[in-house]
Write a protein that binds this DNA or RNA. Structure first.
Lengths: 173, 173
DNA sequence: CAGAGCTTTCAAAACATTCTGAAAGACACT
DNA sequence: AGTGTCTTTCAGAATGTTTTGAAAGCTCTG
Protein backbone atom coordinates (compact mmCIF):
# COMPACT_ATOMS: atom_id res chain seq x y z
CA UNK A 1 0.00 0.00 0.00
CA UNK A 2 1.30 3.45 -0.86
CA UNK A 3 1.57 6.23 1.65
CA UNK A 4 -0.90 8.56 0.03
CA UNK A 5 -3.45 5.81 -0.26
CA UNK A 6 -2.98 4.80 3.35
CA UNK A 7 -3.33 8.36 4.53
CA UNK A 8 -6.57 8.81 2.68
CA UNK A 9 -7.94 5.54 3.93
CA UNK A 10 -7.15 6.49 7.47
CA UNK A 11 -8.89 9.84 7.15
CA UNK A 12 -11.97 8.18 5.70
CA UNK A 13 -12.08 5.54 8.41
CA UNK A 14 -11.70 8.06 11.18
CA UNK A 15 -14.41 10.21 9.67
CA UNK A 16 -16.78 7.28 9.51
CA UNK A 17 -16.07 6.33 13.10
CA UNK A 18 -16.69 9.88 14.22
CA UNK A 19 -20.10 10.05 12.68
CA UNK A 20 -21.17 6.97 14.62
CA UNK A 21 -20.19 8.73 17.79
CA UNK A 22 -21.93 12.03 17.43
CA UNK A 23 -18.90 13.83 16.01
CA UNK A 24 -19.35 15.23 12.60
CA UNK A 25 -17.52 13.61 9.76
CA UNK A 26 -15.49 16.60 8.70
CA UNK A 27 -14.39 17.37 12.22
CA UNK A 28 -13.12 13.82 12.62
CA UNK A 29 -11.38 14.04 9.25
CA UNK A 30 -9.61 17.24 10.14
CA UNK A 31 -8.51 15.61 13.35
CA UNK A 32 -7.29 12.55 11.50
CA UNK A 33 -5.34 14.65 9.06
CA UNK A 34 -3.60 16.54 11.83
CA UNK A 35 -2.93 13.35 13.75
CA UNK A 36 -0.94 11.83 10.94
CA UNK A 37 0.91 14.94 9.84
CA UNK A 38 4.39 15.29 11.21
CA UNK A 39 4.26 19.07 10.78
CA UNK A 40 1.48 21.41 11.78
CA UNK A 41 -0.77 22.55 8.98
CA UNK A 42 -2.35 25.84 8.04
CA UNK A 43 -6.04 26.31 7.40
CA UNK A 44 -5.13 26.56 3.75
CA UNK A 45 -3.42 23.15 3.78
CA UNK A 46 -6.43 21.55 5.40
CA UNK A 47 -8.88 23.12 2.98
CA UNK A 48 -6.84 21.89 0.07
CA UNK A 49 -6.31 18.36 1.33
CA UNK A 50 -9.86 17.69 2.41
CA UNK A 51 -11.51 19.78 -0.27
CA UNK A 52 -13.58 21.85 2.10
CA UNK A 53 -14.38 25.52 2.24
CA UNK A 54 -12.66 28.11 4.35
CA UNK A 55 -15.65 28.52 6.64
CA UNK A 56 -16.01 24.85 7.19
CA UNK A 57 -12.36 24.42 8.04
CA UNK A 58 -12.50 27.28 10.45
CA UNK A 59 -15.59 26.02 12.19
CA UNK A 60 -14.30 22.52 12.69
CA UNK A 61 -10.88 23.64 13.82
CA UNK A 62 -12.55 25.76 16.43
CA UNK A 63 -14.64 22.83 17.61
CA UNK A 64 -11.52 20.68 17.84
CA UNK A 65 -9.82 23.33 19.91
CA UNK A 66 -12.89 23.41 22.18
CA UNK A 67 -12.47 19.72 22.72
CA UNK A 68 -8.85 20.32 23.55
CA UNK A 69 -7.67 18.04 20.77
CA UNK A 70 -5.99 20.59 18.55
CA UNK A 71 -3.75 23.56 19.19
CA UNK A 72 -3.14 26.74 17.32
CA UNK A 73 0.44 27.83 16.79
CA UNK A 74 1.73 31.25 15.94
CA UNK A 75 5.02 31.29 14.13
CA UNK A 76 7.37 34.21 14.37
CA UNK A 77 7.35 36.37 11.34
CA UNK A 78 4.26 34.72 9.88
CA UNK A 79 0.74 35.90 10.03
CA UNK A 80 -0.71 32.58 9.03
CA UNK A 81 -1.69 30.27 11.86
CA UNK A 82 -0.80 26.63 12.08
CA UNK A 83 -2.65 23.80 13.74
CA UNK A 84 -1.43 20.61 15.31
CA UNK A 85 -3.08 17.72 17.10
CA UNK A 86 -2.01 16.09 20.32
CA UNK A 87 -0.17 12.97 19.16
CA UNK A 88 -0.16 11.02 22.39
CA UNK A 89 -3.17 8.83 21.87
CA UNK A 90 -3.66 8.09 25.54
CA UNK A 91 -3.98 11.79 26.17
CA UNK A 92 -6.39 12.15 23.30
CA UNK A 93 -8.55 9.42 24.77
CA UNK A 94 -8.48 11.02 28.19
CA UNK A 95 -9.44 14.35 26.74
CA UNK A 96 -12.36 12.91 24.82
CA UNK A 97 -13.59 10.95 27.81
CA UNK A 98 -13.34 13.92 30.05
CA UNK A 99 -15.31 16.15 27.68
CA UNK A 100 -18.06 13.63 27.07
CA UNK A 101 -18.35 12.97 30.74
CA UNK A 102 -18.86 16.66 31.31
CA UNK A 103 -21.19 17.22 28.41
CA UNK A 104 -23.31 14.09 28.51
CA UNK A 105 -22.97 11.93 31.57
CA UNK A 106 -23.30 14.74 34.09
CA UNK A 107 -26.59 16.10 32.74
CA UNK A 108 -28.11 12.63 32.67
CA UNK A 109 -27.03 11.96 36.23
CA UNK A 110 -28.60 15.21 37.28
CA UNK A 111 -31.93 14.30 35.72
CA UNK A 112 -31.89 10.82 37.21
CA UNK A 113 -31.27 12.24 40.68
CA UNK A 114 -34.17 14.61 40.26
CA UNK A 115 -36.42 11.80 39.20
CA UNK A 116 -35.70 9.80 42.30
CA UNK A 117 -37.49 12.56 44.14
CA UNK A 118 -40.87 11.37 42.92
CA UNK A 119 -43.06 10.79 45.94
CA UNK A 120 -42.71 7.19 46.98
CA UNK A 121 -46.03 7.48 48.73
CA UNK A 122 -47.81 7.31 45.41
CA UNK A 123 -47.49 3.56 45.15
CA UNK A 124 -48.84 1.43 42.34
CA UNK A 125 -47.38 -1.04 39.90
CA UNK A 126 -46.26 1.55 37.41
CA UNK A 127 -44.70 3.87 39.94
CA UNK A 128 -42.94 0.91 41.46
CA UNK A 129 -41.41 -0.21 38.19
CA UNK A 130 -40.47 3.31 37.33
CA UNK A 131 -38.63 4.00 40.53
CA UNK A 132 -36.78 0.75 40.40
CA UNK A 133 -35.62 1.33 36.84
CA UNK A 134 -34.52 4.85 37.52
CA UNK A 135 -32.58 3.79 40.58
CA UNK A 136 -30.82 0.95 38.81
CA UNK A 137 -30.00 3.16 35.91
CA UNK A 138 -28.65 5.86 38.17
CA UNK A 139 -26.45 3.34 39.93
CA UNK A 140 -24.93 2.00 36.79
CA UNK A 141 -24.38 5.40 35.22
CA UNK A 142 -22.73 6.63 38.42
CA UNK A 143 -20.43 3.66 38.44
CA UNK A 144 -19.49 4.17 34.83
CA UNK A 145 -18.83 7.81 35.60
CA UNK A 146 -16.57 6.95 38.52
CA UNK A 147 -14.69 4.43 36.46
CA UNK A 148 -14.12 7.00 33.75
CA UNK A 149 -12.91 9.48 36.29
CA UNK A 150 -10.22 7.02 37.31
CA UNK A 151 -9.29 6.50 33.67
CA UNK A 152 -8.97 10.21 33.11
CA UNK A 153 -6.71 10.62 36.10
CA UNK A 154 -4.48 7.66 35.51
CA UNK A 155 -1.37 7.43 33.52
CA UNK A 156 -1.47 4.95 30.74
CA UNK A 157 1.01 2.56 32.31
CA UNK A 158 -0.81 2.22 35.63
CA UNK A 159 -4.12 1.82 33.92
CA UNK A 160 -2.97 -0.89 31.56
CA UNK A 161 -1.42 -2.86 34.37
CA UNK A 162 -4.66 -2.74 36.30
CA UNK A 163 -6.55 -3.96 33.30
CA UNK A 164 -4.19 -6.84 32.82
CA UNK A 165 -4.77 -7.82 36.42
CA UNK A 166 -8.49 -7.88 35.87
CA UNK A 167 -8.15 -9.93 32.74
CA UNK A 168 -6.02 -12.57 34.39
CA UNK A 169 -8.26 -12.73 37.43
CA UNK A 170 -11.16 -13.30 35.10
CA UNK A 171 -9.27 -16.03 33.26
CA UNK A 172 -8.55 -17.89 36.50
CA UNK A 173 -12.07 -17.76 37.85
CA UNK B 1 -42.85 15.77 41.35
CA UNK B 2 -45.82 13.94 39.93
CA UNK B 3 -45.52 10.58 38.27
CA UNK B 4 -46.65 11.68 34.84
CA UNK B 5 -44.25 14.56 34.87
CA UNK B 6 -41.37 12.36 35.97
CA UNK B 7 -42.13 9.85 33.27
CA UNK B 8 -42.09 12.48 30.59
CA UNK B 9 -38.90 14.01 31.87
CA UNK B 10 -37.22 10.63 31.83
CA UNK B 11 -38.26 9.95 28.27
CA UNK B 12 -36.97 13.33 27.16
CA UNK B 13 -33.66 12.88 28.95
CA UNK B 14 -33.11 9.45 27.51
CA UNK B 15 -33.95 10.69 24.05
CA UNK B 16 -31.45 13.51 24.35
CA UNK B 17 -28.75 11.17 25.56
CA UNK B 18 -29.42 8.81 22.68
CA UNK B 19 -28.95 11.46 20.05
CA UNK B 20 -25.50 12.26 21.40
CA UNK B 21 -24.56 8.66 20.94
CA UNK B 22 -25.64 8.01 17.40
CA UNK B 23 -29.02 6.58 18.35
CA UNK B 24 -31.94 8.45 17.03
CA UNK B 25 -34.06 10.38 19.44
CA UNK B 26 -37.31 8.54 18.85
CA UNK B 27 -35.69 5.16 19.16
CA UNK B 28 -34.25 6.13 22.51
CA UNK B 29 -37.63 7.50 23.58
CA UNK B 30 -39.45 4.33 22.67
CA UNK B 31 -36.87 2.42 24.63
CA UNK B 32 -37.27 4.72 27.62
CA UNK B 33 -41.02 4.36 27.54
CA UNK B 34 -40.81 0.59 27.52
CA UNK B 35 -38.19 0.61 30.24
CA UNK B 36 -40.41 2.38 32.68
CA UNK B 37 -43.65 0.61 31.87
CA UNK B 38 -44.54 -2.24 34.18
CA UNK B 39 -46.65 -3.88 31.46
CA UNK B 40 -45.75 -4.43 27.86
CA UNK B 41 -47.24 -1.99 25.41
CA UNK B 42 -48.79 -2.28 21.97
CA UNK B 43 -47.68 -0.25 18.98
CA UNK B 44 -50.86 1.71 19.43
CA UNK B 45 -49.96 2.64 23.01
CA UNK B 46 -46.55 3.82 21.96
CA UNK B 47 -47.88 5.87 19.07
CA UNK B 48 -50.33 7.57 21.36
CA UNK B 49 -47.91 8.28 24.18
CA UNK B 50 -45.08 9.62 22.09
CA UNK B 51 -47.23 11.19 19.41
CA UNK B 52 -45.57 9.46 16.54
CA UNK B 53 -46.92 7.81 13.43
CA UNK B 54 -47.54 4.15 12.92
CA UNK B 55 -44.66 3.79 10.49
CA UNK B 56 -42.26 5.52 12.77
CA UNK B 57 -43.22 3.36 15.72
CA UNK B 58 -42.87 0.24 13.67
CA UNK B 59 -39.49 1.21 12.33
CA UNK B 60 -37.98 2.06 15.67
CA UNK B 61 -39.40 -0.99 17.37
CA UNK B 62 -37.77 -3.10 14.75
CA UNK B 63 -34.45 -1.36 15.25
CA UNK B 64 -34.71 -1.90 19.00
CA UNK B 65 -35.38 -5.58 18.43
CA UNK B 66 -32.30 -5.69 16.17
CA UNK B 67 -30.27 -4.32 19.03
CA UNK B 68 -31.73 -7.00 21.25
CA UNK B 69 -33.16 -4.46 23.64
CA UNK B 70 -36.84 -5.06 23.07
CA UNK B 71 -38.96 -8.16 22.66
CA UNK B 72 -42.18 -8.83 20.90
CA UNK B 73 -44.85 -10.79 22.75
CA UNK B 74 -47.79 -12.62 21.29
CA UNK B 75 -50.70 -12.99 23.65
CA UNK B 76 -53.12 -15.87 23.33
CA UNK B 77 -56.38 -14.90 21.83
CA UNK B 78 -55.11 -11.49 20.72
CA UNK B 79 -53.89 -10.49 17.36
CA UNK B 80 -52.24 -7.33 18.57
CA UNK B 81 -48.58 -7.59 19.47
CA UNK B 82 -47.03 -6.27 22.63
CA UNK B 83 -43.52 -5.02 23.25
CA UNK B 84 -41.40 -5.04 26.33
CA UNK B 85 -37.87 -3.96 27.16
CA UNK B 86 -35.26 -5.86 29.08
CA UNK B 87 -35.43 -4.34 32.55
CA UNK B 88 -32.14 -5.55 33.94
CA UNK B 89 -29.97 -2.55 33.26
CA UNK B 90 -26.72 -4.46 33.44
CA UNK B 91 -27.96 -6.69 30.67
CA UNK B 92 -29.03 -3.70 28.65
CA UNK B 93 -25.58 -2.20 28.99
CA UNK B 94 -23.93 -5.45 27.96
CA UNK B 95 -26.17 -5.75 24.96
CA UNK B 96 -25.42 -2.22 23.81
CA UNK B 97 -21.70 -2.64 24.31
CA UNK B 98 -21.68 -5.88 22.47
CA UNK B 99 -23.54 -4.45 19.48
CA UNK B 100 -21.40 -1.35 19.22
CA UNK B 101 -18.26 -3.39 19.50
CA UNK B 102 -19.44 -5.49 16.61
CA UNK B 103 -20.68 -2.62 14.49
CA UNK B 104 -18.06 0.02 15.11
CA UNK B 105 -14.94 -1.12 16.87
CA UNK B 106 -14.33 -4.16 14.71
CA UNK B 107 -14.38 -2.32 11.39
CA UNK B 108 -11.99 0.31 12.70
CA UNK B 109 -9.61 -2.32 13.97
CA UNK B 110 -9.69 -3.96 10.60
CA UNK B 111 -8.75 -0.75 8.80
CA UNK B 112 -5.98 0.01 11.27
CA UNK B 113 -4.49 -3.41 10.75
CA UNK B 114 -4.54 -2.92 7.02
CA UNK B 115 -2.82 0.40 7.35
CA UNK B 116 0.04 -1.05 9.28
CA UNK B 117 0.88 -2.88 6.08
CA UNK B 118 2.23 0.28 4.49
CA UNK B 119 5.79 -0.40 3.38
CA UNK B 120 8.16 0.59 6.14
CA UNK B 121 10.89 0.88 3.56
CA UNK B 122 9.44 4.13 2.36
CA UNK B 123 10.89 6.16 5.21
CA UNK B 124 10.57 9.88 5.65
CA UNK B 125 9.30 12.14 8.39
CA UNK B 126 5.69 11.96 7.36
CA UNK B 127 5.61 8.20 6.92
CA UNK B 128 7.30 7.84 10.26
CA UNK B 129 4.74 9.93 12.10
CA UNK B 130 1.93 8.19 10.31
CA UNK B 131 3.04 4.70 11.19
CA UNK B 132 3.63 5.59 14.77
CA UNK B 133 0.22 7.16 15.17
CA UNK B 134 -1.55 4.28 13.52
CA UNK B 135 0.25 1.77 15.67
CA UNK B 136 -0.49 3.59 18.90
CA UNK B 137 -4.07 4.01 17.92
CA UNK B 138 -4.41 0.35 17.05
CA UNK B 139 -2.96 -0.63 20.41
CA UNK B 140 -5.32 1.50 22.40
CA UNK B 141 -8.38 0.51 20.43
CA UNK B 142 -7.47 -3.15 20.81
CA UNK B 143 -7.10 -2.76 24.51
CA UNK B 144 -10.42 -1.00 24.81
CA UNK B 145 -11.97 -3.77 22.78
CA UNK B 146 -10.53 -6.45 25.04
CA UNK B 147 -11.69 -4.63 28.11
CA UNK B 148 -15.19 -4.38 26.73
CA UNK B 149 -15.16 -8.04 25.93
CA UNK B 150 -14.51 -8.77 29.58
CA UNK B 151 -17.33 -6.45 30.57
CA UNK B 152 -19.72 -8.18 28.23
CA UNK B 153 -18.86 -11.59 29.61
CA UNK B 154 -18.89 -10.70 33.28
CA UNK B 155 -21.72 -10.76 35.66
CA UNK B 156 -22.46 -7.48 37.27
CA UNK B 157 -21.34 -8.52 40.73
CA UNK B 158 -17.89 -9.70 39.68
CA UNK B 159 -17.33 -6.67 37.56
CA UNK B 160 -18.29 -4.20 40.23
CA UNK B 161 -16.03 -5.86 42.74
CA UNK B 162 -13.12 -5.61 40.34
CA UNK B 163 -13.82 -1.95 39.80
CA UNK B 164 -13.87 -1.31 43.50
CA UNK B 165 -10.50 -2.97 43.76
CA UNK B 166 -9.11 -0.68 41.12
CA UNK B 167 -10.53 2.38 42.79
CA UNK B 168 -9.03 1.56 46.15
CA UNK B 169 -5.69 0.64 44.64
CA UNK B 170 -5.69 4.00 42.93
CA UNK B 171 -6.59 5.76 46.17
CA UNK B 172 -3.65 4.15 47.97
CA UNK B 173 -1.08 4.93 45.33
C1' DC C 1 -4.60 55.33 7.46
C1' DA C 2 -4.65 52.30 3.22
C1' DG C 3 -3.84 47.87 1.74
C1' DA C 4 -2.30 43.05 2.07
C1' DG C 5 -3.00 38.85 4.14
C1' DC C 6 -5.16 36.34 6.92
C1' DT C 7 -9.34 34.73 10.14
C1' DT C 8 -14.10 34.75 11.47
C1' DT C 9 -19.01 35.05 10.82
C1' DC C 10 -23.42 33.97 9.00
C1' DA C 11 -27.38 33.53 5.80
C1' DA C 12 -28.60 30.70 2.32
C1' DA C 13 -27.94 26.26 -0.19
C1' DA C 14 -26.98 21.48 -0.21
C1' DC C 15 -27.40 17.38 1.83
C1' DA C 16 -28.87 13.78 5.17
C1' DT C 17 -31.93 11.87 8.32
C1' DT C 18 -36.25 11.05 10.17
C1' DC C 19 -41.22 10.91 9.98
C1' DT C 20 -45.72 10.49 7.98
C1' DG C 21 -49.73 8.37 6.12
C1' DA C 22 -51.71 5.85 2.70
C1' DA C 23 -51.52 1.54 0.62
C1' DA C 24 -50.31 -3.20 0.58
C1' DG C 25 -49.62 -7.42 3.20
C1' DA C 26 -50.53 -10.91 6.66
C1' DC C 27 -53.43 -13.47 9.39
C1' DA C 28 -57.48 -15.39 11.81
C1' DC C 29 -61.94 -16.01 11.78
C1' DT C 30 -66.58 -16.82 9.59
C1' DA D 1 -63.56 -16.19 -0.57
C1' DG D 2 -64.73 -12.09 2.38
C1' DT D 3 -64.11 -9.21 6.39
C1' DG D 4 -61.95 -7.09 10.26
C1' DT D 5 -57.82 -6.26 12.73
C1' DC D 6 -53.33 -5.51 12.96
C1' DT D 7 -48.43 -5.04 10.84
C1' DT D 8 -45.18 -3.62 7.37
C1' DT D 9 -43.48 -0.90 3.62
C1' DC D 10 -42.14 3.10 1.15
C1' DA D 11 -42.32 7.52 -1.51
C1' DG D 12 -42.60 11.98 -0.47
C1' DA D 13 -42.68 15.69 3.18
C1' DA D 14 -40.72 17.68 7.07
C1' DT D 15 -37.02 18.57 9.76
C1' DG D 16 -32.21 18.84 11.11
C1' DT D 17 -27.33 19.22 10.04
C1' DT D 18 -23.46 20.57 7.49
C1' DT D 19 -21.24 23.30 4.03
C1' DT D 20 -20.45 27.12 1.22
C1' DG D 21 -18.86 31.63 -0.14
C1' DA D 22 -19.12 36.27 0.23
C1' DA D 23 -18.66 39.91 3.39
C1' DA D 24 -16.91 41.80 7.55
C1' DG D 25 -13.08 41.87 11.01
C1' DC D 26 -8.67 41.82 12.57
C1' DT D 27 -3.74 43.08 12.58
C1' DC D 28 0.52 44.13 10.81
C1' DT D 29 3.36 47.09 7.63
C1' DG D 30 4.67 50.80 4.67
Amino acid sequence: MQFEEAKEKFIQAWGALGSNWGINRTMAQVHALLLISAESLSAEDIMATLNISRGNANMNLRALMDWGLVNKEHRFGERREYFSAEKDIWQVAQQVISERRKRELKPVLKVLEELKAIRKAEVNTDTQAFLETVENLATIVEQADQFLEVVVQSDSKWFLESMVKIFSQKANS
